[in-house]
Simulated scan of single mutants.
Amino acid sequence: MPAKPDLAKYKTIVLDCDGVVLNSNQTKVDAYFNTAKRMGGTDAQAQAFVDYHIKLGSIPRNDKIRHYITDIIHQPLTPELFQAFMDTFTVILDETLMQCQVAPALHELKAATSQAKWMLMSGGDQDELRQIFPRRGLDGLFELGIYGGPTKKNEHLARMIADGTIQFPALFVGDSRFDHQASTGAGLDFIFVSDWTDMPDWETYCKQHHVTVCHHLEMSLNEAFPSI
């Protein structure tokens, strides 16, 4: 069983966005469904888009949209059609990301881990995140920067470990299978945040892989507990 983590030891803390910093997983689900519908899809096609999004977890949306076009609606993947889907998704998502809940006590957690530098790393679009977080007054929490798609998290981690941006010991706080696999594969410790995740059967996964779990982001300080 994993021991409760000592957050005071970390030099770098990397946080996922959806389901960790923002309560936005359902927001993303709705955006995928509504994008498919607005672009002429049936309810069944829109639900297949959602199912693929949930299956892939934190993979950037570019890959999911390509899959939807080629494998769900069986259309040629032209640059124009791909961009139309990307633009539609962005318009639908922007307003809801400005309204969704921020993790309670986020600033208190930042103050309590003042020895560490923070970084945001998301499967969401990087340019979009770098617009949303300043508008929500959250960008100042992440002195190491805000990173997202289309670059995958494991690729970001490899580059920033190589150039020294990420200093060890380092911790990744996420809510998906890919978060766990990408971070531990890169040598970071990992905490799974459960209450806002949309990962199916996360309890079984965390137990099988001995993942430390906490209910909320702010509980990572004192109430993280071994996998159930």
Rank of each mutant, 00 (worst) to 15 (best):
M1I: 09
M1V: 12
K4R: 14
K4E: 03
P5Q: 03
D6K: 11
I13G: 13
G19M: 05
G19P: 04
V21L: 11
S24C: 07
V29M: 07
A31R: 09
F33V: 02
N34T: 03
T35Y: 07
A36Y: 10
A36S: 13
T42P: 12
T42Y: 09
D43N: 13
Q45K: 10
A46L: 08
Q47K: 13
Q47F: 15
A48M: 12
I54V: 15
I54E: 06
K55H: 14
P60A: 04
K64T: 03
R66E: 13
I69W: 07
T70S: 13
D71K: 14
H74P: 01
T78V: 04
L81H: 08
T90E: 11
T90Q: 10
V91Y: 07
E95F: 07
L97W: 09
M98W: 05
Q99L: 14
Q101K: 13
P104W: 07
A105C: 12
E108F: 03
L109Q: 04
K110N: 11
K110G: 03
T113H: 04
A116S: 15
D125R: 01
Q126P: 02
D127C: 00
Q131K: 11
Q131F: 06
I132Q: 08
F133A: 00
F133H: 01
R136S: 06
R136N: 04
L138N: 07
G140F: 13
Y147F: 15
G149E: 01
G149R: 01
P150Q: 06
T151Q: 10
T151E: 07
T151H: 02
K153N: 09
L157R: 01
M160L: 13
M160A: 01
D163T: 08
T165L: 09
I166Y: 11
F168W: 04
A170P: 05
R177T: 11
F178R: 13
D179H: 08
H180S: 00
H180V: 00
Q181E: 15
G187R: 08
D189I: 07
I191L: 14
I191S: 11
W196S: 03
T197Y: 14
T197S: 15
D198P: 00
W202C: 01
Y205K: 02
T212C: 14
C214K: 06
C214T: 15
E223K: 09
P226W: 15
